[in-house]
Write a protein that binds this DNA or RNA. Structure first.
Length: 485
DNA sequence: ATGTAC
């Protein structure tokens, strides 16, 4: 049997792209890493594998903890991690969801081709930068009062539709139709709501961006056709999350859960994995608050979509409907959701924690919107500003081996601090312009932190997903121009 | 990721 030695952790190769850490002291289940050997070496370079092992100590965890090919270390649990935990007898852990609740990505289609936008990059970027608030701190497209924030938390994209920022088809092309029914705004602290009220419709900082892209490769013509994608088409990717509101929700519940469930915590190897037992008041409250933050993030991306449509209509002199600016799909990258999965031949309700992982349901699952139920859901995987991104289709194997999940991006290779040592924003921007990618950011430091060289190889990440059959390649897109915090 | 800090 082939093994891989990572410090004091030994992984056994189960088969191509599947590595397992067998259970030992305190691990309730094994841990699995889905990766090529090269990606595994990169994953083994930080604390990801130890964090993955730690997660297997959580009560009620089923089958195995998973690290996707884009995994890297995060708060308590790797970014790129999936943990499915019994929703009746297990627990829920905010650290296994992440600070940026429903950080996620949506793709907006157009009927423009690369020739239509070539030469207009600067004009587009300047107009988008003016229309979409970026960077840290406050300032959003909508200035909400307390009632607005409550309505957003409760009703998600349906609120945006009522206010004229969304159309019906936007809801039909969003995970959960843009509304998480389990949202409980009363479980969100006033402090979190106050942080959110002037951030409604704002990109934020870090790896968040709005990017205009062109389709360069079509791998599956039938599915591309079902998704309305074709070679040379211009599409727009919007990547952002729940800003200060989601961050505050995570922080509030981590502190409360650490205190109220210190007994459970004392049996876990890392304080950052603090978890609330299923059925406890805090488990219910966190779940309701997290679902509300999910709605907030969807509205955030919807408001940015609205602005983007307005900008394109101005620049190209046609209504956005005539430019074909429909939503392909909106996927969450940081969530925990109650889902029913087969465990040892029995249907079980689980809290599926996906932190830096994407739901990748194949054809037939009832949660997939009817527009895609016969094909499988679109899975959107942003790469870096230089490398480009992918649209995949939820794979047949995902329900068997990954609780209906796949990777979520390229995955970092180094910390932000290290990135700023290795790169300078201005140089990165110049290099990108040499590749005909026009980037504008609020801060040079952000460009350095997000330089293409700080990311793993997105082609390799996606090829692992495709080879395992958990998310299948549909199209590849290349960046044209990009705005960031 | 984040009013970049318990």
């Amino acid at each position: 049997m082939t093994t891989f030695e990572a410090g004091n952790i030994t992984l056994h190769k189960v088969r191509e792209h599947v590595w397992e850490i067998p259970p030992e002291d305190g691990m309730r289940v094994p841990a699995r890493v889905f990766a090529s050997e090269r990606l595994l070496e990169e994953i083994a370079d930080d604390k990801s594998l130890q964090q993955l092992k730690n997660t297997t100590h959580l009560p009620g965890i089923e089958k195995y903890a998973i690290c996707m090919p884009d995994g890297h270390q995060g708060y308590g649990f790797p970014v790129g991690g999936v943990a499915a935990i019994d929703a009746e007898n297990g627990c829920i852990s905010p650290g296994a969801v992440g600070y940026d609740i429903n950080c996620g990505v949506r793709m907006v289609k157009t009927n423009l081709t690369y020739d239509d936008v070539s030469g207009m990059e600067e004009e587009l970027v300047e107009a988008l930068f003016d229309a979409v608030p970026t960077g840290l701190g406050g300032g959003g497209i909508v200035q909400g009062d307390r009632d607005t924030v409550d309505a957003v938390l409760e009703r998600g994209v349906d609120w945006a539709r009522e206010e004229g920022y969304a159309v019906k088809s936007d809801l039909e092309h969003c995970e959960d139709e843009g509304v998480r029914p389990d949202a409980d705004p009363s479980a969100v602290s006033q402090k979190a709501k106050d942080r959110g009220r002037n951030q409604l419709g704002s990109l934020g900082s870090g790896n968040h961006f709005l990017e205009v892209q062109r389709v360069t490769d079509v791998f599956d013509a039938d599915i591309a056709d079902a998704y309305g994608l074709e070679a040379d088409q211009i599409v727009i990717l919007i990547h952002c999350g729940s800003r200060g509101l989601g961050h505050q929700v995570c922080n509030d519940y981590l502190r409360d859960i650490e205190q109220a469930h210190s007994g459970l915590l004392s049996k876990l190897p890392d304080k950052e994995l603090a978890a609330a037992p299923a059925g406890s008041q805090l488990a219910e409250d966190y779940y309701g608050a997290m679902c509300a933050a999910i709605n907030f993030a969807w509205v955030n991306r919807q408001l940015i979509t609205h602005q983007t449509r307005t900008v394109f209509a101005d620049v190209f002199g046609e209504p956005w409907e005539d430019l074909g600016m429909e939503l392909l799909y909106d996927v969450a990258h940081n969530i925990a959701k109650k889902e029913v999965h087969d465990v040892d031949g029995e249907d079980k309700e689980l809290y599926v924690h996906r932190k830096g992982a994407t739901r990748a349901f194949p054809a037939g699952r009832p949660e997939v919107p009817s527009a895609y139920r016969d094909v499988g859901q679109p899975v959107i995987i942003p790469g870096s500003m230089g490398a480009g991104s992918y649209v995949l289709c939820g794979g047949e194997q995902s329900l068997d081996i990954s609780f209906g999940s796949t990777a979520h991006g390229a995955g970092r290779l180094m910390s932000r601090t290290q990135a700023k040592d290795e790169f300078w924003g201005g140089d990165v921007q110049d290099d990108l312009r040499g590749q005909e990618v026009y980037v504008k950011a609020e801060s040079g430091a952000t460009i350095a932190e997000e330089a293409p060289g700080v990311y793993k190889d997105v082609d390799e990440v996606v090829s692992v997903s495709d080879a395992l059959g958990i998310g299948d390649k549909v199209v590849r897109v290349a960046p044209v121009c990009n705005i960031k915090g």
